[in-house]
Design a protein around this nucleic acid. Sequence first.
DNA 1: GATGAATGAGCTTTCATTCAT
DNA 2: AATGAATGAAAGCTCATTCAT
Lengths: 197, 197, 197, 197
Amino acid sequence: MARVTKQERKDGIISVALKLFSEKGFYITTIPDIAEKVGMSVGNFYNYFTSKDILAKELVVYISEYIGAKIKKINESDIATEKKIYEIVSMYFDMADEKPEMIEYFLRVYLSNREVFKEGCEGMICVSAFVTELMIFFDEGVESGDLYDQDFFSAFGLFMGYLGGMVFLFGEKILPDSLSSYKESIAQNIYNALKAR
Amino acid sequence: MARVTKQERKDGIISVALKLFSEKGFYITTIPDIAEKVGMSVGNFYNYFTSKDILAKELVVYISEYIGAKIKKINESDIATEKKIYEIVSMYFDMADEKPEMIEYFLRVYLSNREVFKEGCEGMICVSAFVTELMIFFDEGVESGDLYDQDFFSAFGLFMGYLGGMVFLFGEKILPDSLSSYKESIAQNIYNALKAR
Amino acid sequence: MARVTKQERKDGIISVALKLFSEKGFYITTIPDIAEKVGMSVGNFYNYFTSKDILAKELVVYISEYIGAKIKKINESDIATEKKIYEIVSMYFDMADEKPEMIEYFLRVYLSNREVFKEGCEGMICVSAFVTELMIFFDEGVESGDLYDQDFFSAFGLFMGYLGGMVFLFGEKILPDSLSSYKESIAQNIYNALKAR
Amino acid sequence: MARVTKQERKDGIISVALKLFSEKGFYITTIPDIAEKVGMSVGNFYNYFTSKDILAKELVVYISEYIGAKIKKINESDIATEKKIYEIVSMYFDMADEKPEMIEYFLRVYLSNREVFKEGCEGMICVSAFVTELMIFFDEGVESGDLYDQDFFSAFGLFMGYLGGMVFLFGEKILPDSLSSYKESIAQNIYNALKAR
DNA sequence: GATGAATGAGCTTTCATTCAT
DNA sequence: AATGAATGAAAGCTCATTCAT
């Protein structure tokens, strides 16, 4: 009778790797580091992920799907576009507070180590779950007449760049206040930038 | 007569390192890589920079001062705040076009490899030249009644996150058009977000 | 069935390192040198000793305990103090003949490379097993009325300095005869110097 | 008008090298270290000593002659052999107090780094000035009937091993008292060991 | 004599990955 | 599935020595 199933082991690795990669960086974190913290042998690690790079890529997909699901829920809720913006900002900042690994991994590992994701994550492949939902949000906002009809990437860059930037500043302990306290003003700024004119 | 002065050598290293670090990443780029491309021996490299980390830190300062000077000029010009925003966006995107190493270094090396900059670049020390100028821009905009008086970091995060995000998308070859073509709409979005209300 | 146990591997390294360090010196001997002679890879060496310095320190302790045990046996034997001196001299010279690495390591590596042993071997920490036994010998000699009651370190310096000096001269091939042939006269000299007066 | 003569420069190097080699060890001390402390360029250093090894060898000769001269004076003085022993011990310990570099260099550099002195200092070549004087001391002592007629090297090993051992213990800060306070008892011990019987 | 930038071999150490058990 | 010893290429960095000026 196995103590842990294969999936549980995999989840264990994902959880530990996310933490270590986001805290110490991709190159600083070693496979022995991860294996030890998971409580398994180095050799066995390779039964679950065939390389360090593969692990890194699976992590992006994992996060993308996780955030994508959250945005999907917001998209499907019956609230105004302006409110949706607030909800997305709120969700993002709450996550940065509660599961900082995810956002930090995104910012510090995925966005920065091109070499690692070059093969297998071309364009937005590994991140499509999450991008697609934002696309839906934006399209619906335009369709409903709430948002100005502009290039999607400009809107996307604003949204994600802004949120990422704030989380980054927070991570650097540069922000004077909690992330939460910025939710309102930032949602407002985004809405002002994107709203129909 | 000396072929190259000491300063020229140093500049050569800076230029090559900027290119390699931003293209291949900090950890992938080796000192032998840099030395070879500069055309000097590994040992001699260390006569100019006492460690790889030190080199990385000097590069941030170098870039920060470079961009800071550009923004300073815009700050000092006699144009409306809205126009200034456009000028900054324009300068940033032009730089990303012509000297992509600088922006890329910022995004991919400085912002991501915390370990490297932990000691010596605490907070915004190494980046102050550039942050200070943006602060001045913002303060003057508020004072003149053009911009809404909000937390500086929120405005800063919007500005830099947005621009960084767009350059990132461009670097990933995800943008359908040139960066230049986005100047107007992005400047507009930023202005809409920050303007007095 | 495992070819070699982990302890056997460690012993193999100790034995080879002792030989090389004592013959060629600490700085001249490289880890690749050691690994090759043991028949293992450089990387694997570090699974047994986490650094060259650590190896050096473990070697001193190893030798100190080895010699300490020998002296202990002599201390516990039921013979006169004068005879004990002879036995110690004899044991020391025999060792210098049969396992010259040990004594040479002591003289040429431990006593000379302060930098290496500064941290972790302060005072006589790494060498206490052996010093303690000599202390016991001396105390018992004084107590039994055989030895003159003087400062321990003076007696210690005489004993070890003298023996070390002779082994050194021998190692330099300066001595006209074998070490063995000096046993009697040197034991006599030591006894004359230390005996009750 | 030259500020310093060639010989003065050489003396400067000798003095600095002696200090650094004895304090930090032969391999830890670099030529740039020495050159800087002397106040000259690395390149110029090589105009005075053609290699690091050569410098090391010249230093031994220098010290050997220095100590040899001191012993010579004692040898030539009109005092009893017992008193001469005391004078030599006293001179040695005073030197260890006032110019510790010399003794330390002997113990930690010359006696330990065989590789360095292998060629050019075979046997006792580099150290003959000093050994010769001790030999004279011993021969005269025997001739005068004060000392027991035994193998010179045994007497030499006792003398130098003992003194070296004490200075070593002192250098390690293991001795409870000053070296000076041991002069009497050690001279006594040596005399007891060597005197006619 | 004097300078110090330049060389390059070589050192210690790390780590992704493999594989016999 | 699981272990962890083993591999070996490669990294950052040092330093004795040279040589153009």
